[in-house]
């Protein structure tokens, strides 16, 4: 290798150094530190661990039928429920908005509104609307003759209500992503199917949906990962522990509680590592499914 090549290679590394340093410091180091912490008995303060615990935190987490596994189930329930409804509604809205119509811009702008607000603000807004005593929702239901509901004050209603709030906030994003996908589809195949006498459903099922599949799966992966990580709206509406009976405690809320309410840093790190593996697993599964369907 000539002197020029060596110098050139060093310069290349030097130019890359800030980016590599950033990735190392902000992504790799926290990940490795969390992994390290997950094998210690750190309690009270992160540096208070007396040593490696031989994976006891993982055994404790996986053997915890009272908090960990119910949190896993709620995470799955919330994500699957919310994302499925958002996808169906988003697709329906995208199909409706596909053809130009009068007032289209206004409708699209209105659709954006829930996306622009922060989740905490949305949480507080819905908390006020759904307050069982002073909220407007029960006043409206009362006018329709429906008995008052507890909504977020109820152990059984809280998670479904929060899923619907998530649907309210994120369906527009699904609609916009799918609308972008629909706008790239060529019109000729659909026209040909129409000429051949295909019904609306047949055109949707056999022409539009296959063409939209890649966009649909990408949107699904993005939304699913985001929904898995939902924290702010759950915490803003139900507080620490996800409510009095841990009714909306997902893995994220559980890990936060272990860290900030219980100061069990070792166990919290183990839960976070398991949670990360879970998310990676979901992404791999969805991408594999997407590739199989495309092939």
């Amino acid at each position: 290798m000539s002197g020029f090549d060596r110098s050139h290679r060093r310069l290349r590394w030097l130019m890359l150094a800030p980016a590599l340093g950033f990735v190392g410091l902000m992504i790799i180091f926290p990940l490795l530190f969390t992994l390290h912490l997950s094998f210690t008995d750190a309690f009270g303060a992160v540096n208070a661990g007396k040593g490696y615990d031989g994976g006891q935190n993982y055994l404790d987490a996986l053997g915890d039928g009272r908090r960990f596994w119910p949190a896993v189930w709620r995470t799955v329930y919330f994500t699957v429920g919310a994302v499925v409804i958002e996808t169906i509604l988003g697709l329906a809205i995208a199909m409706l908005l596909r053809k130009p119509f009068r007032g289209m811009r206004v409708v699209r702008s209105v659709l954006m509104v829930p996306l622009l607000a922060t989740p905490v603000a949305i949480g507080i807004l819905w908390l006020l609307i759904l307050d069982p005593t002073n909220g407007i929702a029960n006043h409206l239901l009362g006018a329709l003759g429906v008995p008052p509901q507890e909504f977020l004050g109820s152990v059984s209603q809280s998670l479904p209500v929060l899923m619907l709030i998530d649907v309210w906030q994120w369906t527009p994003m699904m609609a916009l992503l799918l609308l972008a996908g629909l706008s790239t589809l060529p019109e000729e195949p659909e026209e040909a199917a129409r000429v051949d006498g295909a019904t609306s459903w047949q055109r949707f099922r056999h022409v539009i949906l296959p063409g939209l599949w890649t966009t649909l799966m990408t949107a699904l992966v993005l939304r699913a990962v985001d929904a898995l990580k939902t924290f702010d709206i759950l915490y803003a509406t139900k507080g620490p522990g996800g409510g009095s009976d841990f009714e909306v405690e997902t893995l994220n809320v559980y890990a936060y509680g272990l860290t900030f309410d219980y100061q069990e840093y070792g166990l919290a790190a183990a839960v976070l590592v398991l949670f990360t593996l879970f998310i990676v697993g979901v992404v791999v599964l969805l991408r594999r499914r997407s590739r199989e369907a495309s092939a």
Binding site: P132, E150, F151, L152, G153, K238, S244
Partner: peptide, 14 residues
């Protein structure tokens, strides 16, 4: 009131 299990100071006082 209904929903008392979701009530802390901020909800009960008003």
């Amino acid at each position: 009131p209904p929903g008392a299990t979701n009530m802390s100071l901020e909800q009960a006082m008003p």
